[in-house]
């Protein structure tokens, strides 16, 4: 579904991405992991077209995404930090996104809005919200338009355990529907029961891309955290 071929990106002298090639398919739930500054957010952003690679290319459903914007209607993106124009209300943000993305005849998925309890605070201005509530808004927006791909950047950071649980359940449910889900995270333990594939990056390079079974088999560890740790030691 998404294929990156030899994607490289430099920020000044820093090599953020160094010839990264990965293939992501429908129904997979991929954890994009690596230490800070390893290039995982940059990779997510190149897929979203927010960062333009210096070389290499990315295809989405077989089409090159360069100079293309239309493909993004199939992607739901939840940024790491969600900041919104401070005088907009939650309701206005949701309305604006509906105006941008909603196509006639399709149903919007407002499950998260309700389970997060956002529907009771539609009139609140963005500047009055806590970081956690803003994350809830970001998450709700990402799932709202039934995209076939979800890119979630540190989705559970800043969420309380209850909200985090709700979100995880939602992710699992969407995965069951056969969607591609890419999660960048460094809190590995949280991803244990979600993930089917692991992409591990370090210093802009793709270290490995394995299914979770393969990883377990290779390392003999059943827990994701330990499996990764054992790789890092080797």
């Amino acid at each position: 579904m998404i294929i990156t071929s030899n994607v490289s990106k430099k920020f000044g002298k820093l090599k953020a991405l160094d010839s990264v090639s990965v293939t992501c398919n429908r129904g997979e739930c991929i954890a994009l992991i690596g230490p800070n500054g390893s290039g995982k957010t940059t990779l997510a952003k190149t897929i979203l077209g927010m960062v333009v690679p210096d070389s290499g290319f990315i295809t989405f459903n077989g089409k090159n995404i360069l100079h293309n914007w239309d493909y993004r209607k199939d992607i739901g993106y939840m940024p790491q930090i969600g900041r919104y124009p401070e005088n907009m209300t939650i309701g206005q943000i949701l309305d604006m996104m509906r105006d941008i993305r909603h196509t006639k005849g399709s149903q919007t998925d407002e499950e998260l809005i309700e389970t997060f309890g956002l529907n009771t605070m539609m009139q609140k201005r963005m500047r009055t919200l806590s970081g956690g509530t803003r994350q809830k808004v970001s998450a709700s927006l990402a799932f709202m338009f039934n995209p076939s791909v979800l890119i979630l950047d540190e989705p559970t950071a800043g969420l309380d355990p209850v909200a985090s649980g709700i979100l995880k359940k939602k992710i699992v449910a969407e995965k069951e529907k056969g969607k591609l889900i890419i999660i960048t995270s460094h809190v590995l333990s949280e991803l244990d029961d979600l993930v089917t594939q692991i992409i591990y990056m370090q210093e802009g390079r793709l270290k490995f891309h394995k299914s979770i079974q393969a990883l377990h088999a290779d390392t003999g560890e059943t827990q994701l955290t330990r499996a990764i740790a054992s790789i890092m030691i080797n």
Binding site: L48, M50, D70, R72, P79, I81, G82, R83, Y84, R101
Partner: peptide
């Protein structure tokens, strides 16, 4: 102040 908002908009199906 809108830089994150702009990022969000860029991730949407919109021309820059």
């Amino acid at each position: 102040n809108s830089s994150e908002f702009i990022e969000l908009l860029v991730s949407q199906p919109l021309r820059r």
